Computed example of a mutant assay.
Amino acid sequence: MSDDQMPQRSPDQRFPGGWTPAAPPRARPQEPARPQTEPQPEPRPTPPPPSVPPRSRPQPAAEDEEPLDLPDELRKRAARHGDPLWLRLAQTIRRSIGSDSFPGDFAGALDACQRPVTTGRRIGVVGATGGAGASTLVAALALVLSDVRADHIAAVDAVGRPSGLLPRLPAGSPRGGLAGLAALAGAHGEIGLHELRAHAAALPGNLHRLTLDAGDRPLTAADREGLYQGLSRTCAVSLIELDAHADLRHLHALVVAVPATPGSGGAAASLLAGIRASSPGLPVLPVVVNPHACPASDVRLAEANLDAQPVSATRRRTTPAHHLDHDRHLAAGLAVDLRLVGERRRLQVAALAANALHAASGAPGDAA
């Protein structure tokens, strides 16, 4: 039988085991000679585009991009935990045996911070004296509310320059945007979330920071009114740092920071009297702040001075003053990280945020 008459078989049938003999190498056809041309220069590699974050959502500043040039000792102080190591160990042991009430109290305060609001609430923060801790309160309250709420929160510094929010709420974009947003709101009558993001320095999550730039003029009464109305349409809660002479008519509640230092009682009494005369129905939440680790006697004296102040012309305040005790992390004056704030101070901030939001539930200038 010739090879042409043999039945065709697959390679596996002809060679059991799957091995197939290699075919003889085939001669490659010779390519026609190419015409000689001049050598072309090698293309230069295109450099990659610089990694610039989008303007609409600036990224938070890294550690080496902090806008302030500070000594290493101060940076180390800012990175310390508010509670020393021995106290944290004692808290862990106490919680392991079930005799610590902090987790339940803190969870209850955070639940109260999620109170639903119909329109944006505007909560002012003012200090009785310079260095009373108003900027720290604005930053801490804004961080607590932005952590537990899904809507937008604004942290606004309307005092002037230099802003205390810049080191406490650092962002990748150094812009302030407060004056530009106020002018836009006054010109068009309303602003939306797009305009807010275009002017504010966006922080991680849903928190927006607004401050005055170096060349901005102070805000007028018309600027503040348009700004407040615009913030109410875009943000559920706006924490606004104000000076002692600001107009309080468009606020829903006011937090007054009173430092626990000797000599601050007279300034606090004068400030509260002026607030009582100009805005008698505005809910006021005084806070005794201990930024410099003052002794307990000074804290009790500041609280006693507040208790002696009447909330109106006929009655005195019956609710105790809030407290923000000394915290090693908050006292550094740099970026606030709630994970580094001591447990007791963290609970104090959460309780103040919940009470301020509850007090701000009424109409502007009306007691809740």
Rank of each mutant, 00 (worst) to 15 (best):
Leu352Asp: 10
Gln5Gly: 01
Pro71Trp: 10
Asp243Phe: 13
Ala112Gly: 07
Ala158Gln: 06
Leu141Phe: 08
Leu207Glu: 11
Pro32Asn: 04
Ile93Ser: 13
Gly230His: 13
Ala154Gln: 10
Ile240Pro: 01
Val144Met: 06
Pro174Ala: 08
Leu347Arg: 03
Ala221Gln: 15
Asp298Thr: 13
Gln5Leu: 00
Asn206Met: 08
Leu143Lys: 11
Arg300Asp: 15
Val311Thr: 13
Gly98Pro: 00
Asp247Tyr: 00
Gly104Phe: 12
Arg95Thr: 13
Ile191Tyr: 09
Gly160Asn: 02
Thr129Val: 11
Pro103Ser: 05
Pro103His: 05
Ala139Gly: 14
Gln348Pro: 03
His152Asn: 09
Arg197Asp: 04
Pro167Cys: 06
Asn305Lys: 04
Gln8Ile: 06
Ala257Arg: 04
Ser264Lys: 00
Ala187Gly: 05
Cys113Gly: 07
Ser312Arg: 02
Arg209His: 06
Pro262Leu: 10
Ile240Lys: 00
Ala150Cys: 04
Met1Asp: 12
Val138Met: 08
Leu231Val: 07
Arg57Gly: 07
Gln36Lys: 08
Pro35Ile: 02
Gly230Gln: 14
Ala139Glu: 15
His188Asp: 15
Gly266Leu: 14
Asn355Tyr: 11
Thr119Lys: 02
Leu251Gln: 10
Arg168Pro: 06
Leu219Ala: 10
Asp3Gly: 05
Ser173Phe: 06
Gly176Trp: 10
Arg94Ile: 12
Ala313His: 00
Arg9Asp: 06
Ala350Asp: 02
Ile240Glu: 05
Asp327Pro: 01
Val287Met: 15
Ala132Leu: 06
Arg209Leu: 15
Val117Pro: 00
Val148Glu: 15
Ala62Trp: 00
Arg316Ile: 15
Ala308His: 02
Leu271Arg: 03
Ala368Phe: 14
Thr118Tyr: 05
Ala331Phe: 01
Ile123Asn: 15
Phe102Met: 04
His322Thr: 02
Arg344Gly: 11
Glu343Gly: 05
Thr220Asn: 08
Ala356Ile: 10
Leu282Phe: 01
Leu330Thr: 01
Gly274His: 09
Ala142Ile: 09
Ala293Val: 07
Ile93Phe: 12
Gln30Tyr: 07
Leu143Val: 03
Leu193Met: 13
Leu89Tyr: 08
Gln36His: 12
Arg197Gln: 06
Pro283Gly: 13
Ser101Asn: 13
Asp83Phe: 00
Leu166Met: 04
Arg339Glu: 14
Gly226Val: 00
